[in-house]
């Protein structure tokens, strides 16, 4: 690595463009959001930056707290479901041969590469009242009726536009986020510890709970964080799968900019979301550092 002043012209030639772009189109807009979060609506289009904390105070109104806690709770439930679904997959991947391993990895990652909107749309198509799930249920229902069971007409289930639809959507979209860190952590495990446990007479389940899970804890923590952050900030999932009153923080922010036209409040909410995100990322870095220690012994 060279000191920049030993080769000034070349340094400037390569450094300037990305840095200026980053400052102009990322830092400046973010600084603007930050500044506006201390502002007030001073007319239909004007915003005065008055240094008020009123927008942040607004976030503590009960109806807003409700939305914020809903976001946290829904994202957290989805994250836990992801953990339960992903852990066995990660275990299988860890102990599979190389070929199976890469196939499983590919199969888990492939939907992740598919357009988020399309995946959400696919869920809607499955879960709507005329969708595939209801259609299948109706099919079995009708068979039961034709066999003489008196069940009456099939009433389609309302699977969409409620909070459980949001959770299903969040799980569906964020599952790969959970598999990868779990796999990374499990792959580093010292297998002789597991073998020792099995040799000494512990069953597979006991070994799993007492040896694998504690050792993989940093990875589990990293997976929880990595899944939780984007789930909490998700916009499309609650917007398309939730009902009109099932807001999450991102949909609430969007409303401030489009319908409610309260940009300063929207800015404050954005920065609240941003601070939470950054705190969780700091946590993740911390867990990763600890994970490194566990594997190093």
């Amino acid at each position: 690595m060279q000191n920049w002043f030993e080769n000034k012209r070349f340094f400037w030639a390569t450094m300037l463009a990305p840095t200026v772009w980053f400052l102009a189109f990322f830092v400046a807009p973010m600084a603007l959001v930050w500044a506006y979060s201390f502002g007030e609506n001073a007319g239909p289009v004007n915003i005065a930056i008055t240094g008020t904390f009123g927008n942040y105070a607004k976030a503590f109104r009960p109806e807003i707290i409700q939305v914020l806690s809903d976001s946290v709770v829904l994202a957290f439930i989805a994250t836990l479901i992801c953990l339960v679904l992903a852990f066995p997959v990660a275990i299988a991947m860890t102990f599979a041969d190389d070929k199976t391993k890469s196939w499983l990895l590919l199969l888990i990652m492939l939907p992740f590469w598919t357009n988020l909107l399309i995946r959400t749309y696919a869920l809607i198509a499955m879960m709507r009242t005329e969708g595939f799930i209801n259609f299948s249920f109706a099919f079995f229902h009708n068979i039961a009726v034709s066999l003489g069971f008196n069940l009456g007409d099939y009433v389609p289930m309302e699977l969409l536009y409620n909070k459980s639809a949001i959770v299903i959507g969040l799980v569906y979209v964020h599952l790969p986020f959970m598999v990868l860190p779990l796999y990374a952590a499990l792959d580093k495990l010292d297998r002789s510890l597991i073998e020792a446990s099995l040799d000494l007479g512990a069953g597979h389940m006991t070994t799993m709970w007492k040896i694998v899970v504690p050792l993989a804890l940093p990875g589990i923590a990293a997976g929880l964080v990595i899944t939780f952050i984007p789930a909490m900030g998700a916009y499309l999932t609650p917007d398309l799968l939730g009902g009109p009153n099932d807001l999450m923080i991102a949909t609430l922010i969007e409303r401030q900019f489009k319908r409610a036209n309260d940009w300063p409040f929207g800015s404050a909410l954005s920065f609240i979301l941003m601070y939470v995100t950054l705190i969780f990322f700091a946590l993740r870095t911390f867990f990763e550092a600890r994970g490194g220690k566990v594997s190093a012994h």
Binding site: W4, V33, F257, S270, M274, T277, F281
Partner: peptide
């Protein structure tokens, strides 16, 4: 290639667009 002042800042700063929630960046833009 280079060592330069505030390199760490630029390096971690460039990670921000990757981690910041999309909605925040959308609002900023």
């Amino acid at each position: 290639r280079f060592k330069f002042p505030m390199k760490g800042l630029l390096e971690s700063g460039l990670n921000l667009p990757i981690v910041v929630p999309e909605i925040c960046m959308g609002v900023g833009v």
